[in-house]
Design a protein around this nucleic acid. Sequence first.
DNA 1: TAGATTGTTAATCGATTAACAATC
DNA 2: TAGATTGTTAATCGATTAACAATC
Lengths: 209, 209
Amino acid sequence: MVKMTDKLIPDIVVGRLPRYLRAIQQMSKEGFQTTSSQVLGERLGISAAQIRKDLSQFGEFGKQGTGYPIPYLIQQLQHILKINRKWEMVLVGVGDLGHAIARYQGFANGGFHITMVFDNDPKKIGSQVGDYIVKDIALLDQNVRAAGIKIAMLTVPASEAQTVADCLVQSGIQSILNYAPVTLTVPPHVHVQNIDPVINLQRMTYYLD
Amino acid sequence: MVKMTDKLIPDIVVGRLPRYLRAIQQMSKEGFQTTSSQVLGERLGISAAQIRKDLSQFGEFGKQGTGYPIPYLIQQLQHILKINRKWEMVLVGVGDLGHAIARYQGFANGGFHITMVFDNDPKKIGSQVGDYIVKDIALLDQNVRAAGIKIAMLTVPASEAQTVADCLVQSGIQSILNYAPVTLTVPPHVHVQNIDPVINLQRMTYYLD
DNA sequence: TAGATTGTTAATCGATTAACAATC
DNA sequence: TAGATTGTTAATCGATTAACAATC
């Protein structure tokens, strides 16, 4: 049955979809043609019921008795997550981490591509990092706006992160992957995801002794 | 009143504590002596009621009328998270990302320190990365065991991550911060946290158009 | 057909919020 | 004292799980 209305999907469900996609892409690489909520659940440490419930929010992708066809499910998940296209991104901040990200090969098959790289350090502007020539951050607004880029990765020092984020929002950026260890303040239409290893580590030490 | 019993704290509560700590450390740096659940909540985008409830699971840190004394709350949170000591860590995998992490200055005031760095590439073994000489991964087990290290950061290629993780577990590691885009399988006593930018990005594209 | 597995409902479980007495 | 804010309880809200008819 075709879904006619756009139900509101809980954010926590959306957050699991990329993990489902990653797992079935892995299974595809291993040569499997179909999978089941049970098998997927075991691989991901998630209950089979939850996987079925999550997927059923978006459509009926499986068959009773045989499970889910992998190529079809990959295609559907990519469609749902809107990664059945290539998203252009900008990277701001070319320290060690920005350098590593600029050279990371893993974005391409996730649906992403870094288009431009910026920094404010005159010593870095004009230099080559990976396949990119570092641009002056003063040119960020006009470049991002002209290219209609929606996604930014932020790898500047914590002290500059909010200022640069403001500038990104001003330029039309709607999604920020923030590597700086600060809580960014942005308008409601802008989505922020944080990557902060210290937070992850501190969460684990609670369970150590 | 002193807590006599160790209640079981939900993992989701533990996961918020490092963010509370980060926020009040920031306030401390800004010169504040006290804060309230209200102010903290506004900074973090979390309800005041939730912050009070979370903190009250561990003790009574505040005063009616005046809120929470910042230095005391910092101290208490560090104690709860067991980061009132310095945790030694190993880093495995010296690609671009491992390189960036080895040189990252942000671990120290989070309560962490990288003790050793490993790789299996003969061209890298013996070379200097940050303050470290890269060691042969074949020596990982004896080194980690001898030093009693409990925490590892994993920055090897996806194809090798599970094998190296097995090796880490074997060596006595109990917490793994995994940067490889795979779901690791580990025994129940080992905690894993994943950092995977593509997952974060795919979660945000759902909301773009 | 017989066995397997979906999609979905209802029940359970857990987390968040609202409200307020206590009290600084 | 009067105002502010905690710690905690009860109410609400949302997420997960169990169960099973439908059906491949």
